[in-house]
Amino acid sequence: MGKASDRSRTNKDPALTMFPMMNLMVILVPFLLTSAAFYHMAIVNTTVLTDNPETGKIQDTQIIPLDLYLYLKAEGLTLESSRPMYEGKSRVDFPMLPPGNTYDFPGLRDILIKVKTENELVTTMFILADPGVTYDNVIKAIDHCRDDGKPVPSPEGPPMPRELFPKVTIMRAQ
């Protein structure tokens, strides 16, 4: 009797008990689904220039070697300074690009690289936007002012682009 039952037991196919594993999955998957980030967020730091001495300050510095102003208008971009920025120029206009009438951000970045080369110490950019300019275009302008967009290998970490004018101050257009 005992031998027969042993034999029948050994004839059964061995089955892996998956229930604990399934239980774990059923708990883990909903938890991860609720906390999953399907797109990652970042922040863009800015300040605003006001009459208030407490808040209307330029980021981290009160002394600016060269004042750079970027105007976003309906007809295009204008980069301006009270002093020569590069090759003796103190103003550069960037008309809208066809097709689609988009801002010439690549052209702006090329000029900003030249300005940065001649003015290594300058890190601040003032941005002024006319009514009708979208928030998205202002963020794009800040992005193009921040760095040259060409990541180079860094021994300390991931490849990073060269910084141009990372400190952005928003000004009200008159």
Partner: peptide, 19 residues
């Protein structure tokens, strides 16, 4: 909105963006 917040005493702004 930024200028109103600056008027209230806020000195720094962080724009949330999608990477």
């Amino acid at each position: 909105v930024l200028y109103t917040a600056a008027g209230a005493g806020v000195g720094k702004f962080r724009f949330a963006v999608q990477k």
